[in-house]
Design a protein around this nucleic acid. Structure first.
Lengths: 114, 114
DNA sequence: ACAACATATCAGCAAGGAGTGATATGGCGC
DNA sequence: GCGCCATATCACTCCTTGCTGATATGTTGT
């Protein structure tokens, strides 16, 4: 088993932090969750997630740029889809970890509960 | 395969976001990385990570409360350790996902590059 | 060309969250 | 009990980030 990185300034840690940051918002997770179910157009995502259109659009911009989603235009519609099955793996493993620490996470007052 | 959650207000999504938030900081990841290698006392973590003592202490408080780490006092020293192997699994998952999206994540200007 | 529809972008605001320097608290040795 | 060492906490500052309402841009149908 390789050594784990502990240098705050290392590229690995920076990248990891950035990627985790991309998942660390309820609205973002709602969009990803919807897309894990099936590919969807923006207005469909707006409907599913109950988020505002500009908000959804802005999140999608970031997801697209990060390579977490991909898109195809169909006339007026742009359909978005998850770009890698590793995303669903990550969500499952977060849930597995939550099984162990849910109580603590809930009790912790360090991050907002939105 | 179960349905993925897309309701921004659901407890599942809130919890996930909160847990991801706990990993979404380079300093936090540096501490976790060090602890994945071996159990350490605060001053050792300060040394390894090059972070300030109050900073390390504050992060540890949160990690402890969330149940991500556990601690044992040895006289003057309090040694901290990772509480679940699922944490290392999650880090591996993120690395696997980064293999696919590193370029995009790096290019994305949406989150700070610390 | 124009209107309707779908989506992206912009500017501004408010809240969240990380870090620091100083200080408080707890354990140990004499 | 006191001084030293280890660690926790506090108050404040500053930067980051998410969202909104308005507007811009792109596509389609007539």
């Amino acid at each position: 088993m390789a050594q784990f990185v502990d240098d705050r300034k290392s590229a690995t840690i920076e990248r990891r932090a950035k990627l985790f940051r991309g998942f660390a918002d309820p609205s973002r997770l709602a969009i990803l969750g919807a897309l894990c179910n099936e590919p969807l157009a923006v207005h469909e995502l707006v409907e599913r997630t109950k988020l505002s259109q500009p908000n959804v659009s802005n999140h999608l911009r970031c997801l697209l740029e990060c390579g977490l989603v991909a898109s195809d235009r169909h006339g007026r519609f742009i359909r978005y889809r998850i770009s890698s099955p590793r995303i669903t793996v990550l969500l499952s493993d977060v849930d597995a970890l939550l099984d162990v620490v849910a109580e603590g996470v809930e009790a912790c007052d360090n991050y907002r509960e939105a």
